[in-house]
Design a protein around this nucleic acid. Structure first.
Lengths: 341, 341
DNA sequence: CTGAAAGCGCTAACAC
DNA sequence: GTGTTAGCGCTTTCAG
């Protein structure tokens, strides 16, 4: 591979001139500029960005840490992150924590030593340690989907969150408006803030409507198809099964749909199901899923924009974006028609 | 951030000694080793891998280029790539081509100038140009899922493919064995080799069984839910609709399931559906999807292993892995019960 | 077993 | 408008 010196020699100028042509960092006489460009082209010169980064202390690379990039919701967020990063001239190094906090921390070390310019983090649970590592280095971080809460305001970290509680509220209100009273909830892992907030919304809606809450109607899953399937079976086996389900993510809702079908019941005739996320699949389930839409891709893009902004203005106070959710009515929720089975 | 010189000074040794302690590149007296280790720990020293890479010409980073990381099949492959890379001490830079060949080529340039040690490529279609860029640089490449064909054997590129034709054969034979004769096929984009191979398997199975092929029963989708939905509607609207469907990927099969349900027909009573990929969701559709399983995650892991091997033995002749597929029988295929509708 | 010196390819400060 | 110089932080000969 030719170096910048090869180009310089060939074009009869100094390396710094070539550098300035490449980076438009100061004026170069038009004819020399063209000559340099021509030589670059001729030699097939590609700058070594490693060397450039070492010197300029900018790698134009972000680290992206996710619990699991194959989860459709995160996959969509990742799509937004990658797309916006590309548009802004950044590359993305991807790391999956696989829900193992240790792995998350290990990745943070790796990313830091690779000198990434910033990190986009959906933390698996090691909030405190992760943020300690990060802020010790003073590297910009945007936390996505999950935040450590107000206690961490001093960390000056940007966040992009969605209105989880509002989503739980909207979904449950919708079910109530359809006449349902025994509304169950399949939650995500309780330790996760977004999941907890969705359940909060659910509780609020019930309280608002004066419907007493049967705690046995809340069962926890872990955001996978399988867990939604199992939780739903548990619910159906109860002496007084619910007539509607608010499921805290679409993956589990799909599992629930499957369990209901296998139990010989119909959606929405016997049971209504509302999900959360509006993953692309949700438009094609049987029946099509009514759900709370989160702008996943936009979440990713916003996060990147925050990061890019912070790099150009490091001293800005931390910014917290909260994106709205909305109810998408499809075919999985119907009016209450009396206790089933 | 402390540098290796800070550590050296503090420990009273030379930088090269510290380097050797870190990289175990030659023996160091036990007590000095411990002292160095201690100082490193004390200062919270983290090597700057940029500098290291510039010098050693190894970045321990792979580039991963996919058509779309949110497609569940690729998402699963990516999971395998990321996991195995991590296990082997590599990071992964992710790039989505979004089915735009130009973007794929642009990403290749970026990855090369970031000096990645190798590239894992699921090409969007710019095979020839992509490989030209890559081989000109002599950088190791593993092509996944799609290969340019025998004509490119001189490029000495490793590949990991799956038995696509065999999959088409197995699925169609299964449908035939259930008594179906009018079996339609929803293919992927014709220009893509894997899709074409699956259709080849489908044709072979029909020929094998002496069932004449009605070309009108083959309709092309583009591997998305939506296209499967539309293709299925087209098929159902035909004067003599098929009694079974072989759909070239699960995403489209899900779309087909939805279309069939909306047409008031039942699976598998009226129509049988077989998919391809066995994405995680396939176990939870309504009804559960019979499909051809590809070991997606393993595909990713194998690809990384090939790359790692090649880095340690660059002169090895190119290796081509072909992973087997298998039929997973679930609930979406049933015996032929006479013409439907 | 250890140290000194050179240099990976680039950019930035300073001269002219 | 252009060139010279130094050096980012590390590894790797080469000496000892």
């Amino acid at each position: 591979m030719p170096t910048i010196h090869d180009v310089a020699r060939q074009a009869g100028v100094s390396a710094s001139t070539v550098s300035h042509v490449i980076n438009r960092t100061r004026h170069v006489r038009e004819d020399t500029r063209l000559r340099v460009l021509h030589v670059m082209d001729e030699l097939g010169y590609q700058p070594n960005r490693l060397a450039r980064s070492l010197r300029s202390r900018r790698t134009h690379t972000f680290g992206v840490l996710l619990p699991n990039s194959a989860n459709p919701f995160f996959a969509q967020v990742l799509l937004g992150i990658e797309a916006e990063s590309y548009d802004c001239g950044y590359s993305t190094i991807l790391g999956n924590a696989n829900d193992e906090p240790d792995r998350e921390l290990d990745y943070i070390d790796i990313l830091l030593s690779k000198q990434v310019d910033g990190i986009l983090l959906v933390s698996t649970g090691a909030y405190r340690q992760a943020l300690d590592l990060l802020t010790a280095r003073g590297i910009p971080v945007v936390m996505i989907d999950r935040s450590p809460g107000e206690e961490y305001d001093d960390f000056a970290i940007d966040t992009v969150l969605t209105e989880n509680a509002q989503g739980g509220l909207l979904a449950t209100r919708h079910l109530l408006a359809l006449g349902h009273r025994r509304i169950a909830c399949i939650s995500g892992p309780i330790r996760l803030v977004p999941s907890a907030r969705r359940v909060t919304g659910y509780r609020e809606a019930l309280a608002e409507a004066g419907v007493p809450l049967d705690e046995g109607l809340i069962v926890a899953g872990d955001f996978t198809h399988e867990s939604g399937y199992r939780a739903c079976r548990t619910l159906l086996a109860r002496p007084e099964p619910p007539s509607a389900l608010f499921v805290c993510n679409d993956l589990m809702a799909v599992g629930a749909l499957c369990a209901i079908h296998e139990a010989g019941l119909a959606v929405p005739e016997h049971i209504s199901v509302a999900g959360f996320d509006d993953i692309p699949l949700a438009s094609f389930t049987v029946p099509r899923l009514t759900t709370i839409a989160q702008p996943a891709e936009e979440v990713g893009r916003r996060a990147v924009r925050l990061l890019v902004n912070r790099l150009s203005a490091p001293e800005t106070p931390s910014r917290h974006e909260r994106l709205p959710v909305r109810l998408v009515e499809r075919d999985s929720c119907g009016p209450f028609r009396g206790a089933n089975v």
